[in-house]
Design a protein around this nucleic acid. Sequence first.
DNA 1: ACACGCGTTGTGAACGTTCACAAGGATTGT
DNA 2: ACAATCCTTGTGAACGTTCACAACGCGTGT
Lengths: 343, 343
Amino acid sequence: MAQEPEPVAKKSRAPSMHDVARLAGVSHQTVSRVINDLPNIREETKQRVLDSMEQLQYRPNRAARALVTSRSRTVGILSASRTNYGPAASIQAIEDAASAAGYSVTTASISGYESTSIVRAIDRLLDQAIEGLVVIAPQRRVFDTLAGMSLRLPIVTLQSTAANNDMSLSVDQILGARLATRHLIELGHRSIYHLAGPQDWIEAEARMTGFLDEMNAQDMPTTAPILGDWTAEFGYFAGRELLRMRDFTAIFAANDQMALGLMHAIRDAGLEVPRDISIVGFDDIPDSAHFWPPLTTVRQDFAELGRRCMALLLGGLESGEEYSGSILPTLVVRGSTAAPSSR
Amino acid sequence: MAQEPEPVAKKSRAPSMHDVARLAGVSHQTVSRVINDLPNIREETKQRVLDSMEQLQYRPNRAARALVTSRSRTVGILSASRTNYGPAASIQAIEDAASAAGYSVTTASISGYESTSIVRAIDRLLDQAIEGLVVIAPQRRVFDTLAGMSLRLPIVTLQSTAANNDMSLSVDQILGARLATRHLIELGHRSIYHLAGPQDWIEAEARMTGFLDEMNAQDMPTTAPILGDWTAEFGYFAGRELLRMRDFTAIFAANDQMALGLMHAIRDAGLEVPRDISIVGFDDIPDSAHFWPPLTTVRQDFAELGRRCMALLLGGLESGEEYSGSILPTLVVRGSTAAPSSR
DNA sequence: ACACGCGTTGTGAACGTTCACAAGGATTGT
DNA sequence: ACAATCCTTGTGAACGTTCACAACGCGTGT
């Protein structure tokens, strides 16, 4: 088997600065100046270089640049469950903001619940030499792991009310939960349950806190929240259990999907929402306006969250200051809540 | 202002191969051999190097490696609408598979509908020197743009039945649509509408084709499909329009969200699903089992799709062969379909 | 006319890794 | 005991960019 040289010699590496420089009749440094558009370059020269770049279809080599500057221009996103609407919308917004600022984004998601999975995910991001880290929908466990690694990075956590030494940004979950709860109380409900999220999710905890705070503030008796897993499936089965004892007239679910499952279970039991039981969700995913009945819920502006997150991170990349901010949620009243039927 | 040297000299770049080599008393090349675990290295030496790496917390510099090998070990994902369940699930699976293979993933999403947005997104990926590209939920426009750029990359397109020169992989959309349509016909429906997806989405087109194919095969009259935008919102308004003339007993919606909107509109009109009108969706998103009524739909295994996609791409990175495969969808019958009421 | 300064351009080293190759030591066969 | 061979390790260049600095040319003030 004759190992002849490749038919049409395709050994071509991509064109480099030197190629551009040669074509434009300048030095590589001048090309570099054009690329990073530094001042003190004659307009004519600049144009000549730009033309050459165009002609050769030149693209700066990111790796070489990263090597010498030791800046990767990449930020990492650590996220659990990116198939949920909320995190997905935030990631979207972060990515948009990042690319507008010349950064790129890599994501790593935590698959299981074991702590090794978390470490591996963080490790993968670190391998990319990320300059900043965004943690979305964080669980306690993630925080602990992160704290134990003591990274030298600006970190922004989303949807976390926990004040640590990182920057954090969130929709005010406690307020949101209070709004939802207050709405039910104002309608006249006296026995309200809470279907909460998974225990170690900081978001879930905050919503639970908001619920309990508001109930206490209004001197209402509370029962222990049920801990769910965010899925409609869980909401459905939790609903079936709850309906065995009908000592409540309203449920505040920690997210829209669980609320959906609840409503399913309630109908299955031959009851009606909101006539027999009122339901409030949390998130306002696009579908909830079309659930049956349309869901009363708490709206979070995920996109805004993502944008501000990126601004914060990019700011922090230079200044290194700490900061934490929050965005206000709003209550969206639709068809799943009403005054309790008098019986 | 005395510019004294930094308090605790923190000029520390990260440790490099040379640092490790010095500590272990070997050459940098030996360290390199350990990292890439090449054969022909004494076990004892290897151990010594590994210890030094551990001690210094050494991490290989990805940029330097990429520079010299001109391999970025990164694949790009080009996606529209990543907040939808389907694409999000696929991305998730791709990322998992990629990271298991030592690759990392960057995503770019197409924000608007203008072609410049597409070019910019691709450009951003190219800047990253991606070695392969996955196009998810592709629109015609994206394909055309991509074709016009004639990239030297393995490209895998997901959910596209269009045979071009790239590799492609999809759940068989046409079959899925036929299954859905046949189900309605077998139930006895004679007048069936199709609420399709956006015109230039290849997926939408395939589902429409499947619908028409099956209708024709069974000698059923067809009306022109309505072109939607995948959202529940659109499904709702389309439903309101359609219900003005009640000359149909079933609708096949091109995805679950639009089906949700349709059902909402039908209820608003005082009718019932499936008693008055049957509805079939497409995708089987996790929520649809809990819609009211639970939605009959076509299930696609997005995760499997993502996994196989990555296998294909990684294979193609070496071999460069073309390939296209498809995965079979299944019909999931739930509560939103029934025989038409005789009237 | 001369020095000075400023705007523009060029030179060479450095970043941290891999690659091609060479060199050294131990082992084997005769 | 000597050459041939294999296994292990080291040497130096190269990748494509930025950085620090040097050099050149031209105008300006005296």
